[in-house]
Amino acid sequence: MTTKTDKIDRLAELTAARAEPEHGLGLWREAFRRLKRNPMAVSGAVIVLLFLVIAILAPWLAPYDPEARTWDHEVFQNQNIFVGPRAENWLGLDNAGRDELSRIIVGARQSLLVGVVATGLGFAVGALLGGLAGAAVGLGGRVGQRVDAVIMRVVDMLLAMPSLLLAVSVAAILGPSLLTVMVAVGVTQVPIFARLLRGSMLAQSHSDYVLAANALGVKRRRIVLGHIVPNSLGPVLVQGTLSLATAIIEAAALSYLGLGNPDTSYPEWGSMLADAQRFLSGAPQLAIYPAIVIIITALGFTLLGEAMRESLDPKLRK
C-alpha cells in the first residue's frame, strides 16, 4: 500500500517537475532557452565572456607591466631589429621593448569600456529620441506628427553623415580625451537606435492587440507604454549587441587616427595598431596581434547579436 502511494507521489513529483519549466515562461525566458541551444549564440557568448574576464582581471593576468620598457636594449626600431615570440615574452616585444602580450591583455580594458559606454550612450539617447517620435505618432494628432517629423529629420541628418566622419568631427570638436572617444562613437550610434525603435513602434501600433486595447478603451498613454514599447524593444536590444562590435572597431579607428585617448599610460588596441603601422615591414606581427583581438571581439558580439535576433523573431521559432 505504501509503495503504491509512494509511486503516485513520485509520479506527481515527476510530472510537476516536467510541467514547471513550461510554466510562466515569458517571451524573454523562452528566447533565452532557444539561445542556449544555438551553437552560434554559445560561441559568441563564450568569446564575449572570455574578453570580459580578461578585461576585468587584466592587472593580474598580464605577466609584466605593460608600460615597463624592460627590454628596450634588445629592440632597435631604427635598424629594424625586433624581438618575436620567445619563452619569456609569448608574443614578443613591441617597438619600445615592452611585453606585447601584457599590452594586449591590459588593452582589452579600454577597448571594451569604450565599446560598452559608447553603445550605452548611443542606445540611451537613440532610444529616447526614437521612443519620443514613435510615441508622438502613436498618440496621434497633428502635434504628434510634427514632433515626429522634427525628431526624425534631425536623426536623418545624423544618419546622412558617414559614421566615422561624424565620430572624427565630434572628437575633433571636443578635443581628444577618453570621454570624447565614447561620446563620438556614441553619437554615431544614435540615429540607428532612434530609427529602429521608431520603426518597430510604428509597426506594432498597427497590430491587432493595439486595436483590441483601443476597443476596450485603454488610454493612449497606457497603450504606448504598456503595449507598444515592450513589444518594440527586442530588435533594439539586438542592435545594441551588434553595435558593440562596431563601437569597438570605431574606437580603434579613432585612436588609430590620433583622436583617441591622449593619456598613453594605458595601452589600447587602436593606438597599438596605429603605432605598429610605422614598422609594418619590419614587424608586421605588431599590427596583426591587436587586429586579431579586435576582430575576435567584434565577431563574438556579432555572433551573439545575430543569434539573439533569430531567437526573438517569432517567425523563426520552431
Binding site: 515569458g26 524573454w28 497590430s207 491587432d208 492587440y209 483590441a212 504598456g226 503595449h227 515592450p230 513589444n231
Partner: peptide, 8 residues
C-alpha cells in the same frame, strides 16, 4: 494576435 504577446 488580439492579445499582447509579451504581457501576462
Amino acid at each position: 494576435s488580439s492579445l499582447n504577446p509579451v504581457v501576462p
